[in-house]
Design a protein around this nucleic acid. Structure first.
Lengths: 243, 243
DNA sequence: AGAATATGAGAACGATGTTCGCAATAGGAA
DNA sequence: TTCCTATTGCGAACATCGTTCTCATATTCT
Protein backbone atom coordinates (compact mmCIF):
# COMPACT_ATOMS: atom_id res chain seq x y z
CA UNK A 1 0.00 0.00 0.00
CA UNK A 2 1.09 3.58 -0.52
CA UNK A 3 0.06 5.14 2.83
CA UNK A 4 1.79 2.59 5.01
CA UNK A 5 3.79 5.03 7.15
CA UNK A 6 1.63 5.88 10.16
CA UNK A 7 2.67 8.32 12.88
CA UNK A 8 5.02 6.59 15.33
CA UNK A 9 3.61 5.87 18.77
CA UNK A 10 6.67 7.32 20.53
CA UNK A 11 5.95 11.02 20.81
CA UNK A 12 9.58 12.07 20.36
CA UNK A 13 9.61 10.58 16.89
CA UNK A 14 6.63 12.45 15.46
CA UNK A 15 7.67 15.17 13.09
CA UNK A 16 6.83 18.77 13.90
CA UNK A 17 4.52 19.32 10.94
CA UNK A 18 3.16 17.55 7.93
CA UNK A 19 4.36 18.13 4.38
CA UNK A 20 1.11 19.31 2.90
CA UNK A 21 -1.44 21.24 4.91
CA UNK A 22 -1.50 24.60 6.69
CA UNK A 23 1.19 25.58 9.16
CA UNK A 24 0.24 24.48 12.68
CA UNK A 25 -0.70 27.34 15.01
CA UNK A 26 1.26 25.89 17.92
CA UNK A 27 4.04 23.46 18.68
CA UNK A 28 4.23 20.56 21.11
CA UNK A 29 6.89 22.03 23.37
CA UNK A 30 5.00 25.32 23.66
CA UNK A 31 1.76 23.59 24.61
CA UNK A 32 3.66 21.51 27.15
CA UNK A 33 5.14 24.69 28.62
CA UNK A 34 1.68 26.18 29.09
CA UNK A 35 0.47 22.95 30.66
CA UNK A 36 3.43 22.98 33.06
CA UNK A 37 2.55 26.50 34.16
CA UNK A 38 -1.03 25.47 34.84
CA UNK A 39 0.11 22.42 36.78
CA UNK A 40 2.57 24.48 38.82
CA UNK A 41 -0.02 27.11 39.65
CA UNK A 42 -3.25 25.12 40.05
CA UNK A 43 -2.17 21.51 40.48
CA UNK A 44 -2.11 18.60 38.07
CA UNK A 45 -5.87 18.02 38.33
CA UNK A 46 -6.45 21.41 36.73
CA UNK A 47 -4.60 20.24 33.63
CA UNK A 48 -7.50 19.10 31.46
CA UNK A 49 -7.54 19.15 27.70
CA UNK A 50 -10.24 21.82 27.70
CA UNK A 51 -8.29 23.97 30.17
CA UNK A 52 -5.13 23.78 28.06
CA UNK A 53 -7.04 24.51 24.88
CA UNK A 54 -8.55 27.62 26.46
CA UNK A 55 -5.12 28.72 27.68
CA UNK A 56 -3.57 28.56 24.22
CA UNK A 57 -6.70 29.87 22.55
CA UNK A 58 -7.69 26.86 20.49
CA UNK A 59 -10.44 24.31 20.33
CA UNK A 60 -10.20 21.30 22.58
CA UNK A 61 -10.11 18.70 19.86
CA UNK A 62 -7.33 20.58 18.08
CA UNK A 63 -4.94 19.35 20.74
CA UNK A 64 -5.24 15.89 19.26
CA UNK A 65 -3.41 17.18 16.18
CA UNK A 66 -0.35 17.49 18.43
CA UNK A 67 -0.78 14.63 20.90
CA UNK A 68 -2.35 11.28 20.16
CA UNK A 69 -3.30 10.93 23.83
CA UNK A 70 -3.11 13.09 26.93
CA UNK A 71 -0.43 10.73 28.14
CA UNK A 72 1.89 12.00 25.40
CA UNK A 73 1.40 15.53 26.64
CA UNK A 74 2.30 14.39 30.13
CA UNK A 75 5.46 12.82 28.77
CA UNK A 76 6.46 16.14 27.28
CA UNK A 77 5.56 17.96 30.49
CA UNK A 78 7.75 15.67 32.57
CA UNK A 79 10.70 15.93 30.23
CA UNK A 80 10.21 19.67 29.87
CA UNK A 81 10.08 20.31 33.60
CA UNK A 82 13.18 18.19 34.04
CA UNK A 83 15.10 20.93 32.28
CA UNK A 84 18.32 20.61 30.38
CA UNK A 85 20.20 19.81 33.57
CA UNK A 86 23.42 21.28 32.34
CA UNK A 87 26.19 21.16 34.87
CA UNK A 88 29.96 21.14 34.76
CA UNK A 89 31.82 18.61 36.88
CA UNK A 90 34.08 20.17 39.46
CA UNK A 91 36.34 17.15 39.81
CA UNK A 92 35.09 16.53 43.34
CA UNK A 93 32.64 13.69 42.76
CA UNK A 94 31.12 13.95 46.21
CA UNK A 95 30.31 17.62 45.75
CA UNK A 96 29.02 16.98 42.23
CA UNK A 97 26.67 14.21 43.31
CA UNK A 98 25.43 16.37 46.17
CA UNK A 99 24.72 19.17 43.72
CA UNK A 100 22.84 16.84 41.40
CA UNK A 101 20.79 15.42 44.26
CA UNK A 102 19.92 18.88 45.57
CA UNK A 103 19.02 20.12 42.08
CA UNK A 104 16.80 17.12 41.50
CA UNK A 105 15.05 17.72 44.79
CA UNK A 106 14.55 21.39 43.89
CA UNK A 107 13.03 20.41 40.57
CA UNK A 108 10.55 18.07 42.26
CA UNK A 109 9.67 20.69 44.86
CA UNK A 110 9.19 23.38 42.21
CA UNK A 111 6.90 21.09 40.19
CA UNK A 112 5.14 19.11 42.85
CA UNK A 113 2.99 17.27 40.31
CA UNK A 114 6.09 15.55 38.94
CA UNK A 115 6.37 12.88 41.59
CA UNK A 116 2.85 11.78 40.75
CA UNK A 117 3.28 12.15 37.01
CA UNK A 118 6.55 10.25 37.03
CA UNK A 119 5.02 7.18 38.66
CA UNK A 120 4.83 4.44 36.08
CA UNK A 121 6.29 6.58 33.32
CA UNK A 122 9.48 5.47 31.58
CA UNK A 123 10.70 8.84 30.37
CA UNK A 124 13.29 8.78 27.65
CA UNK A 125 12.85 12.33 26.39
CA UNK A 126 15.70 14.55 25.20
CA UNK A 127 16.20 16.27 28.54
CA UNK A 128 16.24 13.00 30.42
CA UNK A 129 18.78 11.60 27.98
CA UNK A 130 20.93 14.70 28.29
CA UNK A 131 20.89 14.39 32.08
CA UNK A 132 21.75 10.73 31.93
CA UNK A 133 24.58 11.32 29.50
CA UNK A 134 26.19 14.11 31.50
CA UNK A 135 25.76 12.26 34.78
CA UNK A 136 27.47 9.20 33.37
CA UNK A 137 30.49 11.43 32.82
CA UNK A 138 30.93 11.48 36.57
CA UNK A 139 32.79 8.80 38.51
CA UNK A 140 34.90 7.89 35.52
CA UNK A 141 38.55 7.17 36.31
CA UNK A 142 37.59 5.06 39.29
CA UNK A 143 37.85 1.75 37.47
CA UNK A 144 34.08 1.27 37.28
CA UNK A 145 32.10 0.17 34.23
CA UNK A 146 29.33 2.37 32.86
CA UNK A 147 26.75 -0.01 34.33
CA UNK A 148 28.36 0.13 37.75
CA UNK A 149 28.33 3.89 37.60
CA UNK A 150 24.69 3.84 36.54
CA UNK A 151 23.81 1.71 39.55
CA UNK A 152 25.44 4.21 41.88
CA UNK A 153 23.68 7.18 40.31
CA UNK A 154 20.34 5.38 40.03
CA UNK A 155 20.51 4.51 43.70
CA UNK A 156 21.04 8.15 44.55
CA UNK A 157 18.27 9.41 42.29
CA UNK A 158 15.88 6.72 43.51
CA UNK A 159 16.50 7.93 47.03
CA UNK A 160 15.83 11.55 46.08
CA UNK A 161 12.58 10.63 44.37
CA UNK A 162 11.44 8.55 47.31
CA UNK A 163 12.40 11.19 49.84
CA UNK A 164 10.65 14.03 48.07
CA UNK A 165 7.60 11.83 47.59
CA UNK A 166 7.04 11.54 51.31
CA UNK A 167 8.20 15.10 51.85
CA UNK A 168 5.37 16.55 49.78
CA UNK A 169 2.78 13.84 50.36
CA UNK A 170 0.99 15.90 52.99
CA UNK A 171 0.78 18.97 50.78
CA UNK A 172 -0.66 16.96 47.92
CA UNK A 173 -3.17 15.24 50.18
CA UNK A 174 -4.33 18.60 51.55
CA UNK A 175 -4.73 19.96 48.05
CA UNK A 176 -6.71 16.93 46.94
CA UNK A 177 -8.89 16.78 50.03
CA UNK A 178 -10.49 20.13 49.39
CA UNK A 179 -10.16 20.91 53.07
CA UNK A 180 -8.30 23.92 54.37
CA UNK A 181 -4.77 23.24 55.55
CA UNK A 182 -5.79 24.12 59.09
CA UNK A 183 -8.77 21.78 59.08
CA UNK A 184 -6.70 18.96 57.58
CA UNK A 185 -3.98 19.34 60.16
CA UNK A 186 -6.54 19.46 62.96
CA UNK A 187 -8.10 16.20 61.74
CA UNK A 188 -4.67 14.62 61.45
CA UNK A 189 -3.81 15.81 64.94
CA UNK A 190 -6.96 14.21 66.32
CA UNK A 191 -6.13 10.94 64.60
CA UNK A 192 -2.59 10.90 65.92
CA UNK A 193 -3.90 11.72 69.38
CA UNK A 194 -6.14 8.68 69.15
CA UNK A 195 -3.13 6.55 68.21
CA UNK A 196 -1.11 7.96 71.09
CA UNK A 197 -3.89 7.36 73.59
CA UNK A 198 -4.26 3.81 72.31
CA UNK A 199 -0.89 3.04 73.86
CA UNK A 200 0.20 0.93 70.87
CA UNK A 201 3.20 1.91 68.76
CA UNK A 202 5.35 3.30 71.63
CA UNK A 203 8.41 3.90 69.46
CA UNK A 204 6.42 5.63 66.71
CA UNK A 205 4.69 7.86 69.21
CA UNK A 206 8.01 9.19 70.41
CA UNK A 207 8.77 10.29 66.87
CA UNK A 208 5.43 12.05 66.52
CA UNK A 209 6.00 14.06 69.68
CA UNK A 210 9.54 14.92 68.68
CA UNK A 211 8.38 16.08 65.25
CA UNK A 212 5.86 18.45 66.78
CA UNK A 213 8.57 20.26 68.67
CA UNK A 214 10.70 20.91 65.59
CA UNK A 215 10.27 23.12 62.56
CA UNK A 216 8.97 21.14 59.61
CA UNK A 217 11.16 22.37 56.79
CA UNK A 218 14.48 22.33 58.63
CA UNK A 219 13.58 18.83 59.78
CA UNK A 220 13.12 17.83 56.15
CA UNK A 221 16.36 19.51 55.12
CA UNK A 222 18.30 17.73 57.83
CA UNK A 223 16.71 14.39 56.98
CA UNK A 224 17.53 14.83 53.32
CA UNK A 225 21.14 15.74 54.02
CA UNK A 226 21.52 12.80 56.38
CA UNK A 227 20.20 10.28 53.87
CA UNK A 228 22.29 11.85 51.14
CA UNK A 229 25.46 11.56 53.18
CA UNK A 230 24.59 7.97 53.97
CA UNK A 231 24.47 7.08 50.29
CA UNK A 232 27.56 9.11 49.47
CA UNK A 233 29.38 7.15 52.19
CA UNK A 234 28.24 3.95 50.54
CA UNK A 235 29.51 5.18 47.19
CA UNK A 236 32.81 6.21 48.74
CA UNK A 237 33.22 2.71 50.15
CA UNK A 238 32.53 1.25 46.72
CA UNK A 239 35.00 3.58 45.03
CA UNK A 240 37.80 2.90 47.49
CA UNK A 241 37.21 -0.82 47.05
CA UNK A 242 37.37 -0.48 43.25
CA UNK A 243 40.20 2.06 42.98
CA UNK B 1 -26.67 22.06 68.41
CA UNK B 2 -27.34 18.41 69.07
CA UNK B 3 -25.98 16.88 65.83
CA UNK B 4 -22.62 18.53 66.00
CA UNK B 5 -20.52 15.37 65.70
CA UNK B 6 -19.88 14.82 62.01
CA UNK B 7 -17.98 11.84 60.62
CA UNK B 8 -14.21 12.47 60.91
CA UNK B 9 -12.40 13.12 57.65
CA UNK B 10 -9.66 10.62 58.48
CA UNK B 11 -10.99 7.29 57.26
CA UNK B 12 -9.36 5.29 60.05
CA UNK B 13 -11.41 7.14 62.64
CA UNK B 14 -14.84 6.44 61.18
CA UNK B 15 -16.72 3.84 63.20
CA UNK B 16 -17.69 0.60 61.53
CA UNK B 17 -21.44 1.12 61.79
CA UNK B 18 -23.93 3.62 63.11
CA UNK B 19 -25.85 3.21 66.33
CA UNK B 20 -29.32 3.21 64.86
CA UNK B 21 -30.00 1.90 61.38
CA UNK B 22 -29.79 -1.52 59.73
CA UNK B 23 -26.62 -3.57 59.81
CA UNK B 24 -24.37 -2.73 56.85
CA UNK B 25 -24.13 -5.44 54.20
CA UNK B 26 -20.39 -5.01 53.83
CA UNK B 27 -17.37 -3.65 55.64
CA UNK B 28 -14.65 -1.29 54.51
CA UNK B 29 -11.79 -3.78 54.71
CA UNK B 30 -13.73 -6.34 52.71
CA UNK B 31 -14.57 -3.87 49.96
CA UNK B 32 -10.93 -2.78 49.89
CA UNK B 33 -9.88 -6.42 49.53
CA UNK B 34 -12.14 -6.85 46.51
CA UNK B 35 -10.80 -3.63 45.00
CA UNK B 36 -7.24 -4.86 45.52
CA UNK B 37 -8.02 -8.05 43.67
CA UNK B 38 -9.47 -6.10 40.75
CA UNK B 39 -6.45 -3.80 40.68
CA UNK B 40 -4.04 -6.73 40.78
CA UNK B 41 -5.84 -8.54 38.00
CA UNK B 42 -6.98 -5.76 35.67
CA UNK B 43 -4.93 -2.73 36.63
CA UNK B 44 -5.77 0.32 38.72
CA UNK B 45 -7.75 1.96 35.92
CA UNK B 46 -10.27 -0.87 36.10
CA UNK B 47 -11.02 0.07 39.70
CA UNK B 48 -14.05 2.29 39.24
CA UNK B 49 -16.81 2.75 41.77
CA UNK B 50 -19.29 1.03 39.44
CA UNK B 51 -16.92 -1.90 38.89
CA UNK B 52 -16.42 -2.40 42.63
CA UNK B 53 -20.14 -2.11 43.30
CA UNK B 54 -20.87 -4.78 40.71
CA UNK B 55 -18.18 -7.02 42.19
CA UNK B 56 -19.64 -6.90 45.69
CA UNK B 57 -23.20 -6.97 44.39
CA UNK B 58 -24.40 -3.58 45.50
CA UNK B 59 -25.50 -0.32 43.97
CA UNK B 60 -22.81 2.16 43.03
CA UNK B 61 -23.95 4.94 45.29
CA UNK B 62 -24.07 2.56 48.24
CA UNK B 63 -20.28 2.65 48.34
CA UNK B 64 -20.51 6.20 49.61
CA UNK B 65 -21.98 4.84 52.84
CA UNK B 66 -18.53 3.34 53.46
CA UNK B 67 -16.17 5.86 51.87
CA UNK B 68 -16.69 9.59 51.69
CA UNK B 69 -14.55 9.72 48.57
CA UNK B 70 -12.83 7.24 46.31
CA UNK B 71 -9.58 8.50 47.74
CA UNK B 72 -10.48 6.97 51.09
CA UNK B 73 -10.95 3.61 49.43
CA UNK B 74 -7.51 3.97 47.85
CA UNK B 75 -6.06 4.69 51.27
CA UNK B 76 -7.49 1.44 52.56
CA UNK B 77 -6.28 -0.42 49.48
CA UNK B 78 -2.73 0.83 49.96
CA UNK B 79 -2.67 0.00 53.64
CA UNK B 80 -4.34 -3.35 53.04
CA UNK B 81 -1.91 -4.39 50.33
CA UNK B 82 0.98 -3.36 52.56
CA UNK B 83 0.07 -6.29 54.80
CA UNK B 84 0.80 -6.68 58.44
CA UNK B 85 4.52 -6.90 57.76
CA UNK B 86 5.19 -9.09 60.74
CA UNK B 87 8.78 -10.14 61.05
CA UNK B 88 11.05 -11.21 63.86
CA UNK B 89 14.50 -9.63 64.11
CA UNK B 90 17.32 -12.14 63.79
CA UNK B 91 19.88 -10.04 65.60
CA UNK B 92 21.85 -9.52 62.37
CA UNK B 93 20.73 -6.02 61.39
CA UNK B 94 22.20 -6.30 57.91
CA UNK B 95 20.28 -9.46 57.13
CA UNK B 96 17.13 -8.00 58.67
CA UNK B 97 17.25 -4.82 56.61
CA UNK B 98 17.92 -6.87 53.49
CA UNK B 99 14.88 -8.98 54.26
CA UNK B 100 12.71 -5.93 54.77
CA UNK B 101 13.93 -4.36 51.54
CA UNK B 102 13.30 -7.53 49.57
CA UNK B 103 9.86 -7.98 51.12
CA UNK B 104 8.94 -4.39 50.30
CA UNK B 105 10.05 -4.89 46.72
CA UNK B 106 8.01 -8.09 46.48
CA UNK B 107 4.94 -6.26 47.76
CA UNK B 108 5.31 -3.55 45.13
CA UNK B 109 5.88 -6.09 42.38
CA UNK B 110 2.87 -8.15 43.46
CA UNK B 111 0.64 -5.04 43.47
CA UNK B 112 2.06 -2.99 40.65
CA UNK B 113 -0.57 -0.27 41.06
CA UNK B 114 0.87 0.61 44.48
CA UNK B 115 3.77 2.71 43.26
CA UNK B 116 1.29 4.92 41.41
CA UNK B 117 -1.26 4.92 44.21
CA UNK B 118 1.36 5.72 46.82
CA UNK B 119 2.48 8.88 45.01
CA UNK B 120 1.30 11.86 47.01
CA UNK B 121 -0.41 9.75 49.64
CA UNK B 122 0.64 10.10 53.27
CA UNK B 123 -0.49 6.71 54.52
CA UNK B 124 -0.81 6.33 58.24
CA UNK B 125 -3.05 3.29 58.31
CA UNK B 126 -2.78 0.48 60.86
CA UNK B 127 -0.56 -1.72 58.74
CA UNK B 128 1.79 1.10 57.93
CA UNK B 129 2.02 2.00 61.61
CA UNK B 130 2.66 -1.63 62.53
CA UNK B 131 5.48 -1.80 59.99
CA UNK B 132 6.98 1.43 61.21
CA UNK B 133 6.82 0.35 64.82
CA UNK B 134 8.43 -3.03 64.26
CA UNK B 135 11.08 -1.59 61.97
CA UNK B 136 12.05 0.98 64.58
CA UNK B 137 12.87 -1.94 66.84
CA UNK B 138 15.84 -2.61 64.61
CA UNK B 139 19.19 -0.88 65.00
CA UNK B 140 18.60 -0.26 68.66
CA UNK B 141 21.67 -0.75 70.89
CA UNK B 142 23.86 1.14 68.47
CA UNK B 143 23.65 4.42 70.31
CA UNK B 144 21.32 6.02 67.78
CA UNK B 145 18.22 8.03 68.56
CA UNK B 146 14.86 6.96 67.19
CA UNK B 147 15.00 9.78 64.65
CA UNK B 148 18.44 8.74 63.48
CA UNK B 149 17.22 5.19 63.06
CA UNK B 150 14.20 6.48 61.14
CA UNK B 151 16.46 8.34 58.74
CA UNK B 152 18.42 5.18 58.01
CA UNK B 153 15.30 3.11 57.42
CA UNK B 154 13.56 5.84 55.42
CA UNK B 155 16.57 6.12 53.17
CA UNK B 156 16.45 2.42 52.50
CA UNK B 157 12.71 2.35 51.86
CA UNK B 158 12.90 5.44 49.66
CA UNK B 159 15.48 3.65 47.57
CA UNK B 160 13.31 0.55 47.25
CA UNK B 161 10.32 2.61 46.16
CA UNK B 162 12.35 4.54 43.64
CA UNK B 163 14.01 1.42 42.26
CA UNK B 164 10.78 -0.51 41.82
CA UNK B 165 9.18 2.55 40.24
CA UNK B 166 11.64 2.48 37.34
CA UNK B 167 11.69 -1.30 37.35
CA UNK B 168 7.98 -1.57 36.51
CA UNK B 169 7.59 1.69 34.60
CA UNK B 170 7.78 -0.07 31.25
CA UNK B 171 5.13 -2.62 32.19
CA UNK B 172 2.75 0.09 33.35
CA UNK B 173 3.35 2.15 30.22
CA UNK B 174 2.61 -0.86 28.02
CA UNK B 175 -0.58 -1.56 29.92
CA UNK B 176 -1.72 2.06 29.64
CA UNK B 177 -0.76 2.42 25.97
CA UNK B 178 -3.25 -0.17 24.81
CA UNK B 179 -0.59 -1.53 22.47
CA UNK B 180 0.60 -5.10 22.57
CA UNK B 181 3.85 -5.65 24.41
CA UNK B 182 5.51 -6.66 21.15
CA UNK B 183 4.34 -3.56 19.30
CA UNK B 184 5.39 -1.31 22.18
CA UNK B 185 8.86 -2.83 22.35
CA UNK B 186 9.24 -2.57 18.60
CA UNK B 187 8.36 1.13 18.72
CA UNK B 188 10.75 1.67 21.60
CA UNK B 189 13.46 -0.19 19.71
CA UNK B 190 12.98 2.08 16.70
CA UNK B 191 13.21 5.16 18.89
CA UNK B 192 16.39 3.98 20.57
CA UNK B 193 17.83 3.13 17.18
CA UNK B 194 17.17 6.71 16.10
CA UNK B 195 19.00 7.95 19.19
CA UNK B 196 21.92 5.66 18.52
CA UNK B 197 22.18 6.73 14.90
CA UNK B 198 22.07 10.36 15.96
CA UNK B 199 25.52 9.89 17.47
CA UNK B 200 24.70 11.94 20.55
CA UNK B 201 24.75 10.39 24.02
CA UNK B 202 27.72 8.06 23.44
CA UNK B 203 27.87 6.88 27.05
CA UNK B 204 24.14 6.20 27.25
CA UNK B 205 24.20 4.26 24.01
CA UNK B 206 26.73 1.87 25.44
CA UNK B 207 24.32 1.06 28.24
CA UNK B 208 21.48 0.43 25.82
CA UNK B 209 23.52 -2.04 23.84
CA UNK B 210 24.76 -3.77 26.96
CA UNK B 211 21.19 -4.07 28.27
CA UNK B 212 20.03 -5.76 25.11
CA UNK B 213 22.56 -8.54 25.56
CA UNK B 214 21.49 -9.37 29.12
CA UNK B 215 18.38 -10.94 30.55
CA UNK B 216 16.00 -8.29 31.85
CA UNK B 217 14.95 -9.72 35.19
CA UNK B 218 18.36 -10.90 36.35
CA UNK B 219 19.66 -7.49 35.38
CA UNK B 220 17.05 -5.92 37.63
CA UNK B 221 17.82 -8.33 40.46
CA UNK B 222 21.51 -7.58 40.26
CA UNK B 223 20.91 -3.85 40.15
CA UNK B 224 18.63 -4.02 43.15
CA UNK B 225 21.11 -6.05 45.17
CA UNK B 226 23.92 -3.69 44.24
CA UNK B 227 22.04 -0.57 45.32
CA UNK B 228 20.90 -2.33 48.46
CA UNK B 229 24.44 -3.25 49.43
CA UNK B 230 25.52 0.30 48.73
CA UNK B 231 23.06 1.66 51.25
CA UNK B 232 23.78 -1.07 53.77
CA UNK B 233 27.45 -0.11 53.51
CA UNK B 234 26.50 3.46 54.23
CA UNK B 235 24.50 2.37 57.25
CA UNK B 236 27.39 0.22 58.43
CA UNK B 237 29.67 3.22 58.25
CA UNK B 238 27.19 5.25 60.27
CA UNK B 239 26.84 2.54 62.89
CA UNK B 240 30.57 2.04 63.34
CA UNK B 241 30.95 5.79 63.69
CA UNK B 242 28.20 5.91 66.35
CA UNK B 243 29.07 2.72 68.26
C1' DA C 1 -45.59 1.85 69.71
C1' DG C 2 -43.38 5.59 67.93
C1' DA C 3 -39.49 8.50 67.09
C1' DA C 4 -34.98 8.78 65.35
C1' DT C 5 -31.51 7.48 62.30
C1' DA C 6 -28.71 4.68 59.30
C1' DT C 7 -28.59 1.87 54.96
C1' DG C 8 -29.31 0.79 49.94
C1' DA C 9 -29.91 2.33 45.49
C1' DG C 10 -31.93 4.46 41.08
C1' DA C 11 -31.56 8.60 38.65
C1' DA C 12 -29.27 12.45 37.50
C1' DC C 13 -25.34 16.08 37.17
C1' DG C 14 -21.13 17.98 35.79
C1' DA C 15 -16.64 17.02 34.07
C1' DT C 16 -13.40 14.27 31.69
C1' DG C 17 -10.74 12.04 27.58
C1' DT C 18 -11.56 11.03 23.05
C1' DT C 19 -13.72 10.41 18.27
C1' DC C 20 -16.18 11.94 14.10
C1' DG C 21 -17.16 14.66 10.32
C1' DC C 22 -16.50 18.74 7.81
C1' DA C 23 -14.88 23.34 6.29
C1' DA C 24 -10.63 25.86 5.48
C1' DT C 25 -5.83 25.90 4.10
C1' DA C 26 -1.57 25.17 1.65
C1' DG C 27 2.08 22.45 -0.60
C1' DG C 28 3.16 19.21 -4.71
C1' DA C 29 2.08 17.66 -9.33
C1' DA C 30 0.08 18.60 -13.88
C1' DT D 1 -1.53 28.60 -13.01
C1' DT D 2 -4.74 24.86 -11.77
C1' DC D 3 -6.12 20.84 -9.70
C1' DC D 4 -5.34 17.30 -6.27
C1' DT D 5 -4.34 15.78 -1.86
C1' DA D 6 -2.76 15.85 2.70
C1' DT D 7 -3.18 18.46 6.87
C1' DT D 8 -5.16 21.67 10.24
C1' DG D 9 -8.82 23.56 13.35
C1' DC D 10 -12.86 22.64 15.66
C1' DG D 11 -17.98 22.08 16.99
C1' DA D 12 -20.70 18.40 18.35
C1' DA D 13 -21.31 14.19 20.28
C1' DC D 14 -20.19 9.80 23.10
C1' DA D 15 -18.94 6.84 26.78
C1' DT D 16 -17.32 6.88 31.27
C1' DC D 17 -16.12 8.71 35.49
C1' DG D 18 -16.82 10.43 40.57
C1' DT D 19 -20.32 12.22 43.15
C1' DT D 20 -24.94 14.03 44.93
C1' DC D 21 -29.96 13.88 45.64
C1' DT D 22 -33.80 11.79 47.13
C1' DC D 23 -36.59 8.40 49.07
C1' DA D 24 -38.17 3.89 50.54
C1' DT D 25 -36.65 0.41 53.83
C1' DA D 26 -34.78 -1.48 57.99
C1' DT D 27 -33.25 -1.26 62.66
C1' DT D 28 -32.46 0.49 67.34
C1' DC D 29 -33.44 3.63 71.22
C1' DT D 30 -36.85 6.03 74.16
Amino acid sequence: MAGDNVAPSVIWMRSARGARGPQPSHDRQGIARVAIEIADREGIDAVSMRRIATAIGSGTSSLYRYFARKDDLLNLMVDGALGSGDFSPSGDWRADLGTIAAATRETFLAHRWMVTALAGRPTLGPNRLKRLESTLGLLEEHGLSARERLVLIDTLISYVRGFVASEIADDIAIEASGLSAEQWRADQEAYIASIVSSGAYPRTIGLFEESRRLNGSTLQDQGFAAGLNLILDGIAAKLSRAG
